[in-house]
Design a protein around this nucleic acid. Structure first.
Lengths: 145, 145
DNA sequence: TATTGTTATACTCTATAACTATA
DNA sequence: TATAGTTATAGAGTATAACAATA
Protein backbone atom coordinates (compact mmCIF):
# COMPACT_ATOMS: atom_id res chain seq x y z
CA UNK A 1 0.00 0.00 0.00
CA UNK A 2 2.40 2.61 -1.29
CA UNK A 3 0.00 5.54 -1.22
CA UNK A 4 -0.66 5.13 2.47
CA UNK A 5 3.06 4.87 3.12
CA UNK A 6 3.63 8.09 1.21
CA UNK A 7 0.99 9.85 3.30
CA UNK A 8 2.71 8.83 6.50
CA UNK A 9 6.01 9.88 4.98
CA UNK A 10 4.97 13.37 4.01
CA UNK A 11 2.68 14.21 6.88
CA UNK A 12 4.44 13.01 10.00
CA UNK A 13 6.43 15.16 12.36
CA UNK A 14 9.16 12.51 12.21
CA UNK A 15 9.68 13.14 8.51
CA UNK A 16 10.91 16.62 9.39
CA UNK A 17 13.03 15.65 12.37
CA UNK A 18 16.70 16.27 11.69
CA UNK A 19 18.04 13.28 13.63
CA UNK A 20 15.65 10.99 11.83
CA UNK A 21 16.53 12.40 8.42
CA UNK A 22 20.22 12.09 9.22
CA UNK A 23 19.80 8.45 10.19
CA UNK A 24 17.63 7.53 7.22
CA UNK A 25 19.96 9.24 4.75
CA UNK A 26 23.02 7.55 6.24
CA UNK A 27 21.37 4.13 6.27
CA UNK A 28 20.43 4.49 2.61
CA UNK A 29 23.96 5.61 1.74
CA UNK A 30 25.55 2.77 3.70
CA UNK A 31 23.29 0.17 2.09
CA UNK A 32 24.19 1.49 -1.36
CA UNK A 33 27.89 1.50 -0.50
CA UNK A 34 27.71 -2.05 0.88
CA UNK A 35 26.09 -3.28 -2.32
CA UNK A 36 28.75 -1.58 -4.43
CA UNK A 37 31.60 -2.91 -2.29
CA UNK A 38 30.32 -6.48 -2.06
CA UNK A 39 32.10 -7.72 -5.23
CA UNK A 40 35.39 -6.66 -3.62
CA UNK A 41 34.65 -8.52 -0.39
CA UNK A 42 34.46 -5.25 1.51
CA UNK A 43 31.82 -3.54 3.59
CA UNK A 44 31.64 0.08 4.65
CA UNK A 45 33.48 -0.80 7.87
CA UNK A 46 36.40 -2.62 6.28
CA UNK A 47 36.56 -0.01 3.52
CA UNK A 48 36.85 2.68 6.19
CA UNK A 49 39.71 0.86 7.91
CA UNK A 50 41.45 0.30 4.59
CA UNK A 51 41.11 3.94 3.63
CA UNK A 52 42.75 5.01 6.89
CA UNK A 53 45.56 2.50 6.35
CA UNK A 54 46.27 4.16 2.99
CA UNK A 55 47.28 7.43 4.62
CA UNK A 56 50.91 8.54 4.57
CA UNK A 57 51.05 8.34 8.34
CA UNK A 58 49.15 5.12 8.97
CA UNK A 59 47.17 4.95 12.21
CA UNK A 60 47.38 2.63 15.19
CA UNK A 61 44.40 0.42 16.01
CA UNK A 62 43.55 2.72 18.88
CA UNK A 63 43.38 5.70 16.56
CA UNK A 64 41.21 3.77 14.13
CA UNK A 65 38.84 2.86 16.96
CA UNK A 66 38.50 6.45 18.13
CA UNK A 67 38.03 7.85 14.67
CA UNK A 68 35.42 5.30 13.60
CA UNK A 69 33.76 5.35 17.04
CA UNK A 70 34.27 1.62 17.41
CA UNK A 71 35.41 -0.39 20.38
CA UNK A 72 39.09 -1.41 20.10
CA UNK A 73 38.00 -5.05 20.17
CA UNK A 74 35.96 -4.56 17.02
CA UNK A 75 38.98 -3.09 15.26
CA UNK A 76 40.92 -6.26 16.07
CA UNK A 77 38.42 -8.31 14.06
CA UNK A 78 38.35 -5.88 11.15
CA UNK A 79 42.14 -5.72 10.91
CA UNK A 80 42.40 -9.53 11.30
CA UNK A 81 40.22 -9.93 8.25
CA UNK A 82 42.05 -7.38 6.09
CA UNK A 83 45.42 -8.75 7.20
CA UNK A 84 44.31 -12.29 6.39
CA UNK A 85 43.55 -11.15 2.86
CA UNK A 86 46.94 -9.46 2.55
CA UNK A 87 45.46 -5.96 2.23
CA UNK A 88 47.03 -4.46 5.35
CA UNK A 89 49.92 -5.30 7.68
CA UNK A 90 50.35 -4.83 11.41
CA UNK A 91 53.66 -3.54 12.75
CA UNK A 92 54.64 -2.42 16.25
CA UNK A 93 54.88 1.36 16.52
CA UNK A 94 58.59 2.15 17.10
CA UNK A 95 57.60 5.01 19.39
CA UNK A 96 55.32 2.86 21.55
CA UNK A 97 55.75 -0.83 21.08
CA UNK A 98 52.39 -1.61 22.70
CA UNK A 99 50.64 0.02 19.75
CA UNK A 100 50.29 -1.55 16.32
CA UNK A 101 50.37 0.51 13.17
CA UNK A 102 48.03 -0.65 10.43
CA UNK A 103 49.34 0.11 6.94
CA UNK A 104 47.96 -0.88 3.54
CA UNK A 105 50.01 -3.24 1.37
CA UNK A 106 50.47 -2.70 -2.36
CA UNK A 107 47.56 -5.06 -2.92
CA UNK A 108 45.53 -3.15 -0.35
CA UNK A 109 46.14 0.07 -2.25
CA UNK A 110 45.03 -1.51 -5.47
CA UNK A 111 41.82 -2.85 -3.90
CA UNK A 112 41.21 0.53 -2.27
CA UNK A 113 41.52 2.34 -5.60
CA UNK A 114 38.97 0.02 -7.14
CA UNK A 115 36.67 0.38 -4.13
CA UNK A 116 36.86 4.14 -4.17
CA UNK A 117 35.71 4.13 -7.77
CA UNK A 118 32.71 2.01 -6.86
CA UNK A 119 31.51 3.93 -3.83
CA UNK A 120 28.85 6.34 -5.02
CA UNK A 121 29.29 9.95 -4.04
CA UNK A 122 26.22 11.02 -2.06
CA UNK A 123 26.79 14.56 -3.29
CA UNK A 124 26.81 13.76 -6.98
CA UNK A 125 23.12 14.45 -7.52
CA UNK A 126 23.09 17.69 -5.58
CA UNK A 127 23.30 21.29 -6.62
CA UNK A 128 26.95 22.38 -6.15
CA UNK A 129 26.09 25.09 -3.62
CA UNK A 130 23.98 22.64 -1.63
CA UNK A 131 26.77 20.08 -1.78
CA UNK A 132 29.29 22.57 -0.43
CA UNK A 133 26.99 23.59 2.42
CA UNK A 134 26.20 19.97 3.25
CA UNK A 135 29.89 19.09 3.33
CA UNK A 136 30.72 21.95 5.67
CA UNK A 137 27.76 21.41 8.00
CA UNK A 138 28.23 17.64 8.19
CA UNK A 139 31.88 18.10 9.15
CA UNK A 140 30.66 20.38 11.90
CA UNK A 141 28.04 17.88 13.13
CA UNK A 142 30.25 14.82 12.73
CA UNK A 143 33.11 16.16 14.83
CA UNK A 144 31.43 18.25 17.49
CA UNK A 145 31.47 16.57 20.87
CA UNK B 1 47.18 10.06 22.33
CA UNK B 2 44.65 12.69 21.34
CA UNK B 3 46.94 14.67 19.06
CA UNK B 4 47.58 11.69 16.82
CA UNK B 5 43.84 11.03 16.63
CA UNK B 6 43.25 14.60 15.57
CA UNK B 7 45.86 14.30 12.80
CA UNK B 8 44.16 11.24 11.41
CA UNK B 9 40.84 13.02 11.71
CA UNK B 10 41.83 16.10 9.76
CA UNK B 11 44.13 14.59 7.20
CA UNK B 12 42.37 11.47 6.00
CA UNK B 13 40.37 11.17 2.81
CA UNK B 14 37.65 9.47 4.88
CA UNK B 15 37.12 12.63 6.93
CA UNK B 16 35.86 14.33 3.78
CA UNK B 17 33.76 11.46 2.49
CA UNK B 18 30.08 12.36 2.53
CA UNK B 19 28.78 8.87 3.42
CA UNK B 20 31.18 8.67 6.31
CA UNK B 21 30.28 12.13 7.60
CA UNK B 22 26.60 11.30 7.32
CA UNK B 23 27.07 8.10 9.31
CA UNK B 24 29.23 9.69 11.99
CA UNK B 25 26.86 12.63 12.42
CA UNK B 26 23.83 10.36 12.69
CA UNK B 27 25.54 8.03 15.17
CA UNK B 28 26.45 10.99 17.37
CA UNK B 29 22.90 12.35 17.17
CA UNK B 30 21.34 8.96 17.94
CA UNK B 31 23.63 8.41 20.92
CA UNK B 32 22.71 11.84 22.29
CA UNK B 33 19.01 11.17 21.72
CA UNK B 34 19.21 7.75 23.39
CA UNK B 35 20.83 9.29 26.45
CA UNK B 36 18.15 11.98 26.64
CA UNK B 37 15.31 9.47 26.20
CA UNK B 38 16.63 6.91 28.67
CA UNK B 39 14.84 8.38 31.73
CA UNK B 40 11.55 7.89 29.87
CA UNK B 41 12.31 4.26 29.04
CA UNK B 42 12.47 5.08 25.35
CA UNK B 43 15.11 4.74 22.67
CA UNK B 44 15.27 6.40 19.28
CA UNK B 45 13.45 3.42 17.78
CA UNK B 46 10.53 3.33 20.18
CA UNK B 47 10.33 7.12 20.13
CA UNK B 48 10.03 6.98 16.34
CA UNK B 49 7.19 4.46 16.51
CA UNK B 50 5.45 6.52 19.19
CA UNK B 51 5.74 9.69 17.16
CA UNK B 52 4.11 8.01 14.15
CA UNK B 53 1.32 6.67 16.39
CA UNK B 54 0.58 10.27 17.44
CA UNK B 55 -0.46 11.27 13.91
CA UNK B 56 -4.11 12.03 13.16
CA UNK B 57 -4.22 9.11 10.73
CA UNK B 58 -2.29 6.49 12.66
CA UNK B 59 -0.27 4.00 10.60
CA UNK B 60 -0.46 0.24 10.30
CA UNK B 61 2.53 -1.82 11.36
CA UNK B 62 3.39 -2.40 7.72
CA UNK B 63 3.52 1.33 7.09
CA UNK B 64 5.69 1.84 10.15
CA UNK B 65 8.06 -0.85 8.90
CA UNK B 66 8.39 0.71 5.45
CA UNK B 67 8.83 4.20 6.78
CA UNK B 68 11.45 3.29 9.38
CA UNK B 69 13.13 0.81 7.02
CA UNK B 70 12.66 -1.98 9.54
CA UNK B 71 11.56 -5.55 9.04
CA UNK B 72 7.88 -6.07 10.01
CA UNK B 73 9.01 -8.56 12.65
CA UNK B 74 11.03 -5.86 14.39
CA UNK B 75 7.98 -3.60 14.49
CA UNK B 76 6.08 -6.35 16.29
CA UNK B 77 8.58 -6.23 19.15
CA UNK B 78 8.61 -2.44 19.32
CA UNK B 79 4.81 -2.19 19.37
CA UNK B 80 4.60 -5.04 21.90
CA UNK B 81 6.77 -3.06 24.26
CA UNK B 82 4.89 0.23 23.83
CA UNK B 83 1.54 -1.53 24.11
CA UNK B 84 2.69 -3.35 27.25
CA UNK B 85 3.43 0.05 28.81
CA UNK B 86 0.03 1.39 27.77
CA UNK B 87 1.47 4.00 25.42
CA UNK B 88 -0.11 2.71 22.19
CA UNK B 89 -2.99 0.42 21.25
CA UNK B 90 -3.40 -2.03 18.38
CA UNK B 91 -6.72 -2.16 16.50
CA UNK B 92 -7.68 -4.01 13.33
CA UNK B 93 -7.96 -1.68 10.35
CA UNK B 94 -11.69 -1.61 9.40
CA UNK B 95 -10.71 -1.43 5.74
CA UNK B 96 -8.43 -4.45 5.91
CA UNK B 97 -8.77 -6.54 9.01
CA UNK B 98 -5.41 -8.22 8.45
CA UNK B 99 -3.69 -4.94 9.16
CA UNK B 100 -3.33 -3.44 12.63
CA UNK B 101 -3.45 0.27 13.23
CA UNK B 102 -1.11 1.54 15.95
CA UNK B 103 -2.44 4.60 17.76
CA UNK B 104 -1.07 6.44 20.77
CA UNK B 105 -3.09 6.42 23.99
CA UNK B 106 -3.57 9.54 26.13
CA UNK B 107 -0.66 8.37 28.24
CA UNK B 108 1.37 7.79 25.07
CA UNK B 109 0.74 11.36 24.00
CA UNK B 110 1.85 12.66 27.34
CA UNK B 111 5.08 10.63 27.26
CA UNK B 112 5.66 11.72 23.67
CA UNK B 113 5.33 15.39 24.58
CA UNK B 114 7.89 14.97 27.34
CA UNK B 115 10.19 13.02 25.03
CA UNK B 116 9.99 15.60 22.29
CA UNK B 117 11.12 18.23 24.73
CA UNK B 118 14.15 16.15 25.68
CA UNK B 119 15.34 15.23 22.22
CA UNK B 120 17.99 17.75 21.24
CA UNK B 121 17.51 19.46 17.91
CA UNK B 122 20.56 18.80 15.76
CA UNK B 123 19.94 22.08 13.99
CA UNK B 124 19.89 24.24 17.10
CA UNK B 125 23.58 25.16 16.95
CA UNK B 126 23.59 25.93 13.24
CA UNK B 127 23.34 29.14 11.31
CA UNK B 128 19.66 29.50 10.21
CA UNK B 129 20.50 29.48 6.50
CA UNK B 130 22.65 26.39 6.92
CA UNK B 131 19.89 24.71 8.92
CA UNK B 132 17.34 25.38 6.19
CA UNK B 133 19.64 24.01 3.49
CA UNK B 134 20.49 20.96 5.59
CA UNK B 135 16.81 20.25 6.20
CA UNK B 136 15.95 20.46 2.51
CA UNK B 137 18.95 18.44 1.30
CA UNK B 138 18.52 15.74 3.94
CA UNK B 139 14.88 15.28 2.98
CA UNK B 140 16.07 14.83 -0.57
CA UNK B 141 18.74 12.27 0.42
CA UNK B 142 16.56 10.45 2.94
CA UNK B 143 13.70 9.78 0.57
CA UNK B 144 15.36 9.27 -2.78
CA UNK B 145 15.35 5.64 -3.83
C1' DT C 1 49.93 2.04 37.83
C1' DA C 2 48.10 2.95 33.11
C1' DT C 3 47.51 1.77 28.27
C1' DT C 4 47.39 -1.25 23.75
C1' DG C 5 45.88 -4.99 21.83
C1' DT C 6 43.57 -9.25 22.52
C1' DT C 7 40.08 -12.74 23.90
C1' DA C 8 35.72 -14.12 25.64
C1' DT C 9 31.15 -13.11 26.41
C1' DA C 10 26.73 -11.17 26.40
C1' DC C 11 23.54 -8.08 24.56
C1' DT C 12 21.26 -5.65 20.83
C1' DC C 13 20.09 -5.25 16.11
C1' DT C 14 19.04 -7.13 11.75
C1' DA C 15 17.52 -10.60 8.32
C1' DT C 16 15.03 -14.93 6.99
C1' DA C 17 11.79 -18.40 6.86
C1' DA C 18 7.58 -20.50 8.30
C1' DC C 19 3.02 -20.09 10.32
C1' DT C 20 -2.12 -17.81 10.94
C1' DA C 21 -5.66 -15.03 9.62
C1' DT C 22 -7.55 -12.50 6.43
C1' DA C 23 -8.04 -10.80 1.49
C1' DT D 1 -2.79 -16.93 -4.34
C1' DA D 2 -1.19 -13.07 -1.94
C1' DT D 3 -0.51 -10.01 2.13
C1' DA D 4 -0.31 -8.43 7.42
C1' DG D 5 1.14 -9.80 11.40
C1' DT D 6 3.50 -13.14 14.26
C1' DT D 7 7.04 -16.39 15.93
C1' DA D 8 11.47 -18.54 16.02
C1' DT D 9 16.05 -18.37 14.93
C1' DA D 10 20.47 -17.25 13.21
C1' DG D 11 23.73 -13.78 11.97
C1' DA D 12 25.83 -9.21 12.39
C1' DG D 13 26.95 -5.53 15.12
C1' DT D 14 27.99 -3.51 19.71
C1' DA D 15 29.52 -3.20 24.56
C1' DT D 16 32.04 -4.94 28.72
C1' DA D 17 35.35 -7.17 31.44
C1' DA D 18 39.66 -9.55 32.06
C1' DC D 19 44.34 -10.64 30.61
C1' DA D 20 49.43 -10.16 28.54
C1' DA D 21 52.85 -7.07 26.94
C1' DT D 22 54.68 -2.70 27.30
C1' DA D 23 54.92 1.99 29.09
Amino acid sequence: MTTAEAEVTRGSALAHNASFLLTRASVLAAQRDNRMLEPLGLKVRSYSVLSLAIEDVPPTQREIAEFLRLDPSQVVALVDELEGRGLVSRAPDPRDRRAKVVAATAQGRSVYDEARGRVVDVMSHLDPDDAATLQRVLEQLAFEE
